[in-house]
Simulated scan of single mutants.
Amino acid sequence: MINKKDIKKKYYIKIRISIIQKEKWKKACSEKKISLTSLIINSVENRFMDNERRKVLAFIEKQDNIFGKIENNINQVAKIANSQKFISENEIRKFSNKLSEIIILKKEQNEMFTKIYAMLSR
């Protein structure tokens, strides 16, 4: 069992690196918008970086919003088809475009999930 005293971040590890390495690491952290501590700990422990978590959450939120719009479009097409007993060529084109968006998003989603599973299995 882990002692609560051991969880507190009160210990330091000193490492020696060149000034060039330090600048590279700081630049990497700046680009990823994470701390150097987070970079090192997450790298050593094979965990998600904070910026990767943000990407995943942003992707999921974007996907949810787009799927909501697509669902509304599908419902509108169904309503038009049911009420008019036909669908215009323009509506079919819009509908087809939305289905293409779904295919692209599903592909992105599958790639993202593959990366997540790979990271979790380490």
Results as ranks from 00 to 15, higher is better:
54 R>D: 15
32 K>G: 01
30 S>M: 05
77 V>A: 09
121 S>P: 00
90 N>C: 03
106 K>I: 08
56 V>Q: 12
50 D>C: 13
45 E>C: 13
111 E>N: 13
41 I>S: 11
58 A>P: 05
43 S>Q: 08
35 S>T: 14
61 E>L: 06
80 I>Q: 00
52 E>R: 07
27 K>H: 10
77 V>E: 02
43 S>I: 00
117 Y>L: 06
67 F>I: 04
55 K>M: 15
87 I>V: 14
121 S>Q: 07
6 D>W: 15
77 V>N: 04
111 E>Q: 11
93 R>C: 11
34 I>V: 09
37 T>K: 15
68 G>D: 05
101 E>S: 06
22 K>E: 13
74 I>N: 00
68 G>A: 06
35 S>W: 10
37 T>H: 15
76 Q>G: 00
40 I>V: 14
41 I>K: 15
59 F>C: 12
82 N>D: 09
67 F>T: 00
82 N>W: 13
56 V>G: 15
96 S>R: 10
17 I>T: 03
5 K>G: 12
27 K>V: 01
9 K>N: 03
115 K>G: 06
96 S>W: 00
46 N>C: 13
1 M>K: 06
117 Y>M: 03
110 N>L: 10
5 K>L: 09
95 F>E: 12
65 N>R: 10
45 E>A: 14
51 N>L: 07
44 V>A: 15
103 I>W: 02
18 S>F: 02
75 N>F: 10
42 N>S: 08
93 R>Q: 12
51 N>C: 15
50 D>Q: 14
59 F>Y: 11
84 Q>V: 01
67 F>Q: 08
8 K>G: 00
57 L>M: 14
65 N>T: 05
29 C>E: 05
44 V>N: 12
108 E>H: 09
6 D>M: 13
64 D>E: 11
85 K>G: 10
22 K>D: 11
46 N>K: 10
3 N>M: 12
78 A>L: 05
87 I>E: 03
89 E>H: 06
15 I>D: 02
77 V>F: 02
50 D>I: 13
57 L>V: 10
114 T>F: 05
96 S>H: 12
8 K>V: 10
119 M>P: 01
59 F>T: 04
92 I>D: 08
50 D>M: 13
97 N>S: 08
23 E>H: 02
84 Q>T: 07
69 K>S: 07
44 V>G: 11
87 I>Q: 01
41 I>W: 09
22 K>Y: 13
101 E>A: 04
94 K>Y: 06
28 A>S: 03
7 I>D: 03
51 N>Y: 15
117 Y>C: 01
72 N>I: 01
6 D>R: 10
42 N>M: 07
53 R>H: 13
98 K>P: 00
6 D>L: 12
40 I>E: 06
33 K>V: 02
6 D>I: 13
78 A>W: 01
13 I>D: 08
97 N>E: 11
37 T>G: 14
1 M>I: 03
91 E>I: 08
45 E>I: 08
15 I>H: 04
118 A>N: 09
42 N>V: 04
27 K>P: 01
41 I>N: 14
